[in-house]
Design a protein around this nucleic acid. Structure first.
Lengths: 212, 212
DNA sequence: GCAAATTAATGATTTATTCAAG
DNA sequence: CTTGAATAAATCATTAATTTGC
């Protein structure tokens, strides 16, 4: 009824047959990261459409790619941050009795293999699929009431996506977010500050995708 | 573009303005449950489209509704089953020493609070928005390697969706599923026997949905 | 009987995991 | 080892049931 009307636009890159997965170009990544830095976390359908259109100038791309990118980027940034927080946390414990300089050599068996190598540099280890035993786990349970800090000057619906000028407009938003809870004033906005929620699919143009 | 062409059929339910969420009719639910019973778990985009078209005869409905329905139904059936399994499991312990064989009554302190009241009937308590502290949790970690049993005679792509006559056609499918593993022959098709995976969004027709 | 008040279901979103291409 | 893609689990939010006071 309306499937073959929109001309050719997503029919390029038929380079090597099945193009199993999107490979973002440097420009595309740059722009996406910029948007992320601007606070975009969960772009709405319209935003995705818009972003996709813009990024299409730098190479083949579909709405779902943008969607997934934000999804993954957000999640992985969070993981990264949580890992660091955890490191800091355990560090606090390690350096526990720490008046001014101290000598740390308090806990006898705790130095054994801790120091700063308890969580060495493994920055992921089990983050990539493989063992799938949830590993050390915990971690996310540790942070339950820290994800407030929402900054009300992003996710402006369809407007000012690319303009990237931090005009403080204070949208108020007044959704149903708990007004309190976010006691701490200006936290460095960098992790999970979303507040826009939209459908979550219906972007791209139903490409068959013969998978495998 | 195509919103006001197909006469009155999707324009009913305009009862109380914004209809924030889909309320399936009895017929729709019946048909969906039938499809589920037939083994459909994660319908492909085409299947969703098809199902949606059929169900539209009984009231307003969109692709995403069908998608969500299967998603939720599958998950909740699983939950239900798991709960029962858990009950059965603990029952096994409770009735441990009993009929002809074994006495098993080894673990003394394990009877303490299991029974069938460990996870009483609270079925939600905190499921409705409010505390959101992940509550009791657990449960799902208990069953990690039980979801095999896939039956290769459902999910027939686009065909035989509604005809509902169990003609054994054996599609072979040969995707990338492990060919073995499903040793047991005919398992009662009822819980999580999917094997078709598809995009997962891009169904419905991008209804604006002005949300709030 | 009926309508406000609760509670149970369940539709819709978001987040966490997992898989596998590159 | 990184990360795009896909799915499952957890949540949130609104509607339908059900209960309760009148």
């Amino acid at each position: 009824m309306e499937s073959h009307s929109s001309d050719a636009e997503a029919e390029n890159v038929r380079t090597h047959s099945s193009v199993s997965r999107w490979s973002p170009t440097k420009e595309q990544i740059d722009m996406l990261e910029n948007l992320y830095k601007q606070g975009i976390r969960t772009p709405s359908t319209e935003q995705i459409q818009q972003i996709t259109s813009r990024l299409r100038a730098y190479g083949h791309i579909e709405g779902k790619n943008v969607f997934y990118w934000f999804q993954n980027h957000k999640a992985r940034q969070r993981q990264k941050l949580m890992k660091q927080q955890t490191i800091a946390y355990s560090n606090r414990f390690l350096r526990a009795s720490h008046p001014i300089c101290q000598n740390v050599a308090c806990a006898p068996y705790c130095l054994q293999r801790s120091g700063f190598s308890f969580y060495p540099q493994q920055s992921k280890v089990l983050a990539s699929g493989g063992i799938s035993s949830t590993g050390p786990l915990g971690m996310q349970r540790m942070f339950d009431g820290m994800q407030s800090s929402e900054h009300p000057d992003c996710n402006r619906e369809v407007l000012t996506l690319f303009p990237l000028h931090p005009t403080g407009i204070l949208k108020e938003k007044t959704t149903h977010q708990v007004p309190s809870l976010a006691s701490t004033s200006v936290v460095a906005v960098d992790e999970d500050g979303h507040l826009g929620n939209q459908p979550f699919f219906n972007f791209f143009t139903t490409e068959p995708r013969s998978r495998e």
